[in-house]
C-alpha cells in the first residue's frame, strides 16, 4: 500500500524534525545557562514553582519524622538539654561581654587606621530539604529562594563554620555548593600566621585540599583555617577547618596539605545565610600579620 507507506514515512519525518527542534532548544538553553544569562534565570524561577511541590513532597515525610521524634523526646532528655543549653548560654554571655569591649576597641583602631569596618552581616536561617539532587556533587537544596532575598554567591554558615555558597536560586528554593565540592575553591588564611591560600573541595565531605602551599610554608597540623574574604563572597574571619595532614615532599615544590572542615557538612539540618555580604569590605581582610611566604 503506497499511500500508507508514504503516510508512515511522513510521520517519521515529522518526528525527526521535532527531535531536531527540541534538541536545538535544549542545546540553546544549556549554552545560555552556561553563560548565566539573566533571561534564563527568570525562566528557571518560574519553572521552579512547578517542581517545588515535588521537592516538598519528598522532604515532608523526613521532616515529619524529625518533628515526631522531637515531640516524643522524653522529659528527662529535654531537662538535660535545657540544663546544657542554659550553661552554654551563660558561657557565651560571659564571652560576649569581652567581645563587646573588643569590638569597640577594634572599631577605634580601625578608625585610626582609616580602614573599612567589618560588617556583622544579618543572618537568615534556612532549612536543608531532605532531597538528594546528585550523588557526585556536594550540593543541597534549602527552603529559601529569591522571594526570601537569597542571591547567587551568598555565603552559607552553620554554628561551627563555613558550609558553602549559593549556586542556583529558584523562586522558593535555592541550591548550594558545599566547600567540599570538587568544583569549589575557597580563599582561606591560616589563623596562626595569616598565610593565605586556597582550599579546594575534593568531592569527599570530610576533606579539603590546600595544593598551593610551598614546602617552606609555615603550616602545621592542627592549624585553624579561616576565611580570608579575598574572593569577596565570604565574610572574613569565619572558621573553615583544621589542617589534618602536612607532608613536605622534597622532590616537589608544593607540600601535600589536607584539612577537615569544621562545619557539619553532612549532619546539619539548618544553615545560616549571610545577608549583605557585598558590604563586607575586602580591605578588612588584607591586614594579616604575614604576607605571602611564597
Amino acid at each position: 500500500m503506497p499511500a500508507a507507506e508514504s503516510g508512515k514515512r511522513s510521520t517519521a519525518t515529522a518526528l525527526s524534525i521535532r527531535l531536531v527542534l527540541l534538541a536545538a532548544v535544549s542545546l540553546t538553553m544549556m549554552i545560555l545557562d552556561h553563560r548565566e544569562t539573566a533571561f534564563l534565570d527568570r525562566v528557571r524561577q518560574v519553572a521552579s514553582v512547578i517542581v517545588y511541590p515535588v521537592q516538598v513532597g519528598v522532604d515532608q515525610p523526613f521532616s515529619a519524622w524529625r518533628r515526631a521524634s522531637e515531640s516524643f523526646a522524653s522529659r528527662a532528655a529535654l531537662l538535660d538539654e535545657n540544663a546544657r543549653l542554659k550553661s552554654d548560654l551563660r558561657d557565651y554571655d560571659v564571652r560576649l561581654q569581652r567581645m563587646d569591649t573588643l569590638e569597640a576597641e577594634n572599631d577605634r583602631l580601625r578608625a585610626m587606621l582609616d580602614s573599612s569596618q567589618r560588617v556583622a552581616g544579618r543572618m537568615l536561617v534556612a532549612e536543608i530539604l531532605s532531597v538528594d539532587p546528585d550523588p557526585y556533587r556536594q550540593r543541597f537544596t534549602i527552603n529559601r529562594g529569591v522571594l526570601n532575598g537569597v542571591y547567587v554567591g551568598q555565603a552559607l554558615l552553620d554554628a561551627d563554620g563555613v558550609v558553602g555558597q549559593i549556586d542556583i536560586v529558584d523562586a522558593l528554593t535555592a541550591q548550594a555548593v558545599l566547600i567540599s565540592d570538587s568544583n569549589h575553591g575557597l580563599p582561606v588564611a591560616i589563623n596562626r600566621t595569616g598565610l593565605r591560600s586556597i582550599a579546594l573541595g575534593t568531592g569527599e565531605t570530610g576533606l579539603l585540599n590546600l595544593p598551593y602551599l610551598t614546602n617552606s610554608a609555615d603550616v602545621q597540623e592542627g592549624d585553624l583555617l579561616v576565611t580570608s574574604a579575598l574572593g569577596g563572597v565570604f565574610p572574613p574571619g569565619y572558621p573553615v577547618g583544621r589542617v589534618t595532614v602536612v607532608q613536605r615532599r622534597p622532590g616537589q615544590s608544593f607540600a601535600h596539605v589536607l584539612a577537615s572542615p569544621s562545619a557539619g557538612l553532612d549532619r546539619g539540618r539548618e544553615v545560616l545565610l549571610v545577608m549583605n555580604a557585598d558590604e563586607v569590605g575586602l580591605t578588612a581582610a588584607n591586614s594579616g600579620p604575614a604576607e605571602d611566604a611564597r
Partner: peptide, 13 residues
C-alpha cells in the same frame, strides 16, 4: 534539571 540543579537542558537533551 530543575530538581538536580544541572545545566538547564542537560537531561532534556
Amino acid at each position: 534539571d530543575m530538581l538536580t540543579g544541572s545545566l538547564l537542558g542537560r537531561h532534556a537533551l
